[in-house]
Structures are given as structure tokens and as C-alpha cells.
Design a protein around this nucleic acid. Structure first.
Lengths: 177, 177
DNA sequence: CGGTATCCCATTTGATACTG
DNA sequence: CAGTATCAAATGGGATACCG
């Protein structure tokens, strides 16, 4: 059966997965970070089937993560280059690589080191932070209904106002109540 | 045909995708962040088929992102709770949500706000940073062969030593040379 | 409630052959 | 080189029925 489209889910996570959730997509993006631009280089380095690659590249261009440009001025041959939208995914990729290094492969097996160009030192761990830069641990992050929250989302939250007028949101653990 | 297993790819990104690359997996993790613990709550909130959910939960437990525990002491009913390994993915999820908010949905449509519990202010953008906390833009990040680099990886880099003895790595754009 | 077992279809994927 | 076209196999996913 057709998988439910995530696009009707409001969550940005689902929306993002709609774009990059395909198996190969992030690996293609990663290859692009490496500077790979040509069809055949993507193909041989990733070991991906040509038709699948073709399809994924099309979709990535369509979605604005990659752009096609003439390999040399006037040539019909094209290169695939990252757009800002694609480049902006670097946080996700780095976070994912670091997670994989830490919990799956083990840091000692990391095939790639990512360094700060300016100093040559390894980059830091990607972290969630407050706007003023304090690292936030899992439990420091609170959830609230956002500007685009629909009925279903609102139903999952319970709003309470404390004595001093501050507003708190609590997440309902179970719907039935 | 059988899809190539990413596990034989050295890259931690591929390894991570092996664990969480499945369509539903990250959404289940997100639900767990919301505090969802029961099978039926996952099911009804995500709208996922029961057998698929069953399979994904099994795999998540197998891979150590979730753990099963008795719903109440002595009960046979179980809850699914995040492990540290699962919780640690929060960076990835937040980065992905923020990317989706920014590039796909538009921030004004964000159904969920993530705030710093201590202040109630929105959390900051997840960023790649140097170890001493400077934000690193895409081009500030350099790549080098890591401790687990194999022959194939090494071949993609060219090592050069500058006059003053510093070592630089350059990525070969094309293999043939 | 919390699953498991079956069944079946849609999609993805890889291999191969072909084209400009 | 840079794809497109076609095809078969594997898998993912949904629906439904069943069970303790």
C-alpha cells in the first residue's frame, strides 16, 4: 500500500523527512559536502544504481538542495552543487555522524575527522543550546504548541497558569482523560 | 533486489542511517520525546500500522534506543522508554526540525515550539561549533582522514606539508589522477 | 490492551541494456 | 560521460483477523 504521506503531518520533522528521508539522499548530500559534483563520481563512490542516483539527483534539484550548472561555460555537461538549503543541512549531517561515531561505530573507528579549518582542532559536539549559548540537556528542553499548532496538537497540551501569572504547558501523557 | 547494506560502509553517517534510516523510526523517537510510552498511544498518534510499529519498536529496543520496562511493578504490560542512546539523538531531531521549519514549512507554521525550560525562551539554532564555542560555517569545516580511515578513504585525500611543517589535507575532486 | 500472523500491493532498488 | 528505459526481486507498509 501507499505509505502515508508525511506531508499532511504538520510536524516539521515529518516535512523534513519527506525531503531527505529517502535512504540514499543524505549520503548523496554528504558526498556533495566532499566536493563531488559529477554524476559518475557520485555513482562510483556511493555504489548506487544509476537510475536511482538519477532519480535522487532530480528530486534533490527539484527540492532545491542541489543545483545543476554547466560543468564549464557553455558546456551541456552539468555539475551538481549544493545550494544554501543543502549546505544548511550540514548541522544535521554532522550531528548524525557524531551520534554514529559515539553510539554505533565508536570514535576510534571514525573514517573521517572534521576539523576547524582555522585551528586544525577537531570540531566540537553539536549541541542544543539556549539562545544565549548555554548547552541544554534533554530535560532542559520544554515543548509548547507553536504558531502553526492545530487542534490535534493543542489537545496534547494542558495549559496551566501559576499563581504569579506565568503560563506553563504540560504534555498529556495519554489522550484519554 | 536487496538493497546494499550500509553497514559495510565505513561512514558513521551510513551506520547511523542503518539504525534510524527507516521512515518511521525518527517519528517514533520524536513521539517518545513527547513522553509517549504505550504501544497504542504510539499507534494512534502516529497513525502507523500496528505490525509496522511492532517491528520498529522491536528494532529500536534491539538497537538500544528504547527499552522495555514493566508499566507498573510486576505487570506484564510494558512501556517503551528512551535510553541515553535514544535521548542523545535529540540533537539530530532538533536540527532536523529546525531545518524543516526554516526551509520547508516556514517558522510561522511550526506546530511545536521548543523552549529553554529555565527561561521559557525559544531555544537557539543548533550549530556546528569549534570546541571553544565559535560557530563554524560550512566552509570553516575541514575534512581529514580519521583513525578508522581505510584505503579508499585515504585515496580521496591528498596530504601536503607546507614550508613550516604544517600538514594540510586536500580532497581530491575526482578519483582519476 | 498489546501485540502477532497473514496477505497483498506500492515502491524502491539493482542489474542490464541502450542512447546522445 | 551522463544519463534514460526496462525489468525483476526485495522490501516496506497497510488492512485485517486473531490471541492471551
Amino acid at each position: 500500500m501507499k505509505r502515508v504521506s508525511f506531508s499532511d503531518q504538520r510536524c516539521s520533522l515529518a516535512q523534513a523527512l519527506e525531503v531527505i528521508g529517502e535512504w540514499w539522499t543524505l549520503l548523496i548530500i554528504r558526498e556533495a559536502y566532499f566536493g563531488t559534483r559529477r554524476f559518475s563520481d557520485f555513482q562510483s563512490r556511493l555504489g548506487i544504481a544509476r537510475n536511482v542516483l538519477s532519480d535522487r539527483l532530480d528530486r534533490l534539484v527539484e527540492n532545491g538542495l542541489l543545483q545543476r550548472e554547466p560543468a564549464s561555460p557553455g558546456a551541456k555537461r552539468v555539475h551538481y552543487r549544493l545550494t544554501d538549503k543543502g549546505r544548511n543541512l550540514v548541522t544535521v549531517v554532522v550531528a548524525l555522524v557524531q551520534w554514529g561515531d559515539r553510539w554505533v561505530s565508536g570514535p576510534e573507528n571514525a573514517p573521517i575527522r572534521m576539523v576547524d579549518r582555522a585551528t586544525g582542532a577537531e570540531i566540537g559536539d553539536v549541541q542544543v543550546r539556549s539562545q544565549d549559548g548555554r548547552p541544554l540537556a534533554f530535560h532542559d528542553i520544554g515543548l509548547q504548541p507553536g504558531p502553526g499548532a492545530d487542534q490535534a496538537i493543542h489537545e496534547r497540551f494542558q495549559e496551566t497558569v501559576t499563581n504569579d501569572g506565568a503560563v506553563r504547558w504540560r504534555i498529556r501523557r495519554h489522550m484519554a482523560e
